[in-house]
């Protein structure tokens, strides 16, 4: 129904209705993606809501989400298409008698024997979808090159069958944690969106959106502490998802204030490395008010 948003504002409101608070640039780029039909390359640190953006877009536009999780060694057979060779063999055997090779040959390279993988599925779907290619930086450069045809022309060439063109325009999001420099060719074809940790007020809003029951003062305190923790030089700074988890944890525990005791007990929700834990306890923990129970 909301197939074609008419303004940036629409997109923003729509994403919010889908439980995603989009910043100015996020909403704008999402809007441009729907209008221009260009893929979007989303980069940023882990856990700032890159994947979530794709999910929210699919909810907002009520499109199906097709997800391709990338990893090292991902190849065409697992991402694009593969021939269902068992079925093809059966077919050859079943018709072994009497049928000429030519007719069998024409038969077995048809759509019936094609196993569609996420990428082919995304462009051959009758209804437009949102295609999420997650963590593209985990794949090899060869895979990126393979994507180029798909991303610029929305078509896939299958040698035995010909070219499959997109029947509907998917919205494509590629995410990257920036662990590898992507090729210029790929970047050139994409709109670029850099997602960073949100400002204090925005994160507060996000936390409230997901845990509306949490007390306002605790929520604000929590977001401030998370901000402080992110300023430290940690192995893995807490993500937005972890802030939300922490808020939920505090809610479950029925914490009334975020003091040293509560912090020490629940710190592990946002900090996940042993060395980080020590550092955080030392640098952030002491800045909080002394606990009501443990204090002097």
């Amino acid at each position: 129904m909301a197939d074609s948003p008419s303004s940036v504002h629409d997109v923003r409101a729509g994403l919010k209705a889908a439980d995603y608070l989009a910043g100015e640039s996020t909403a704008l780029v999402a809007y441009l993606a729907t209008k221009l039909g260009k893929p979007v390359l989303v980069e940023g640190p882990a856990g700032v809501g890159k994947t979530e953006l794709a999910k929210a877009l699919s909810r907002y536009l009520s499109r199906k989400l097709v997800r391709l999780q990338c990893y090292e060694g991902l190849d065409e057979a697992k991402s694009l298409y593969e021939w269902n060779y068992r079925k093809q063999l059966l077919r050859i055997q079943a018709e072994a008698e009497g049928t000429g090779w030519n007719s069998v040959h024409d038969d077995i390279f048809g759509e019936e024997f094609l196993l569609t993988r996420p990428l082919l599925e995304a462009i051959s779907s009758p209804d437009p979808v949102v295609l999420l290619i997650d963590e593209i930086d985990k794949t090899d450069q060869e895979f990126e090159a393979m994507l180029l045809e798909l991303l610029s022309d929305f078509q896939v060439s299958i040698p035995e069958m010909g070219t499959v063109r997109a029947t509907s325009m998917p919205i494509v999001l590629l995410t990257s944690n920036n662990s590898r420099e992507l090729t210029e060719a790929l970047k050139r074809r994409c709109l670029y969106l850099w997602l960073d940790y949100p400002a204090l007020e925005e994160e507060l809003e996000i936390v409230k959106l997901h845990t509306p029951e949490l007390d306002d003062t605790i929520a604000r305190r929590l977001v401030e502490v998370v901000g402080m923790v992110r300023d430290l030089d940690l192995k893995k700074p807490p993500s937005i998802a972890e802030s939300i988890d922490w808020a939920r944890a505090l809610l479950l525990l029925g914490a009334e204030d975020l003091d040293q005791d509560v912090f020490r007990e629940t710190m592990s929700v946002i900090v996940k490395h042993r060395t980080d834990l020590d550092l955080v306890a030392e640098r952030v923990g002491v800045r909080l008010a002394a606990g009501s129970r443990g204090g002097a």
Partner: peptide, 20 residues
């Protein structure tokens, strides 16, 4: 695709296409 009257949108649109 963006409104001329929104300087931020114009800037972001340029940034999304030019700075990668």
């Amino acid at each position: 695709e963006v409104a001329w009257t929104e300087p931020d949108d114009v800037k972001e649109a340029l940034a999304a296409t030019l700075a990668k």
